[in-house]
């Protein structure tokens, strides 16, 4: 190789004799000329078998605890299931649903219930979060606020059941004495029972929304708020123009968590009304519970559960899509 010219040269002055330095001299002609790159031969990637080997245990576990029961659900939904027997019934479990008024009513009630719960929880939750954010004693106040969430839903249902009680319920007495309620408990009349269970859900789960929103508020970029202020915005406009858009992603997550809970948590409803009076609070999951475990029609129950699952998945996917769009906008 003659492309670099090196010359050994000892350094004069004080350091002479102590060490020698290789000095590279200037010589443009002697340097290699850059060549045009040709396509290289690629090194082999890591083996696929290795990847699958690493994932196999997790996949096996998931298959046992989730895939296997799911297959059973589908199997059951297509059969008349009795203890020890399952008879194919030509999709009757599904076709009958269309004419099942309690099934359709269950959907209608579930939608009303979910929408009311979500609207109230988001509204109150965000308001509380904004009020608490940066307040004095914020940590203590938030912890206090979280207490309903720590209660088992069935216990919450029982506690409110007694508070609502028409004879000795304290809230009932309170509402009655200010003239809002008649002598009947809020849970006892078909017109108000649904509102009764919505109030319990809002009481128990609004703190979750507050907590998530508070975390979101901490991440609202201060400089955007300041820029908008200098641009000429008032506090209120600043909230709607900067804070709220920055909260959308966390609110989407909150909505997703809460609507899924509404579609499956029935503990408090069972404790409060058991679906009554009449069918006034028989939201679909409560009806599903009844069909499967009271009347023991496991095949029909499986069919109802499957429709509920499909709707939950579709709604969930829509929300995930919305969330993704929010994220890419933010990035």
């Amino acid at each position: 190789m003659t492309d670099t010219v090196l010359s050994d040269q000892s350094i004069p002055g004080q350091s002479q004799g102590l060490f020698r330095v290789r000095q590279i001299t200037d010589n443009v002609e002697a340097r290699p000329v850059p060549s045009i790159a040709t396509e290289p031969k690629l090194n082999p990637p890591a083996s696929r078998a290795y990847f699958f080997g690493l994932m196999a245990p997790a996949i096996a576990l998931l298959a046992c605890i989730s895939l296997y029961p799911f297959c059973w659900l589908i199997y059951m939904s297509l059969h008349d299931v009795e203890i020890g027997s399952a008879v194919w019934n030509n999709f009757e479990n599904f076709t009958k649903l269309a004419s099942d008024s309690r099934y359709l009513n269950g959907w209608w009630l579930l939608i009303q219930y979910s929408v009311m719960c979500l609207a109230l929880q988001i509204g109150i939750g965000v308001f509380l979060a904004v009020a608490l954010n940066g307040a004095r004693f914020e940590k203590i106040l938030v912890t206090t606020l979280l207490m309903p969430m720590m209660m088992a839903p069935i216990v919450a249902g029982l506690v409110w059941y007694f508070l609502y009680n028409g004879t000795f319920g304290w809230y009932h007495w309170l509402l009655q004495s200010v003239g809002i309620l008649g002598p009947k408990s809020i849970l006892a009349s078909t017109g108000t029972a649904l509102i009764g269970i919505v109030i319990v859900d809002v009481w128990q789960w609004t703190p979750l929304i507050t907590l998530i929103t508070l975390a979101g508020l901490k991440r609202v970029p201060q400089d955007q708020l300041e820029a908008n202020m200098v641009d000429g915005a008032s506090q209120v406009r600043n909230f709607f123009a900067i804070t709220l858009p920055n909260l959308y992603p966390v609110l989407v997550i909150a909505v997703m968590l809460r609507f899924m809970d509404n579609f499956r948590f029935i503990d408090s409803v069972l404790a409060l009304t058991g679906g009554g009076p009449g069918n006034a609070t028989k939201i679909l999951p409560v009806y599903l519970f009844e069909v499967s475990f009271k009347f023991f029609k496991l095949g029909r129950g499986a069919a109802i559960a499957l429709t509920l699952l499909v709707v939950t998945i579709i709604l969930g996917m829509i929300l995930v899509r919305v969330f993704d769009r929010q994220q890419t906008r933010k990035a």
């Binding site: 970029p221 400089d223 955007q224 820029a227 200098v230 641009d231 000429g232 123009a241 906008r329």
Partner: peptide
């Protein structure tokens, strides 16, 4: 005076553009 009444325009170190 409130920031909006001062009639100044500011450019921030990290731009502070509104991402949405």
């Amino acid at each position: 005076m409130a920031p909006r009444d001062r009639d100044v325009a500011m450019v921030f170190e990290n731009y502070a553009l509104y991402p949405h």
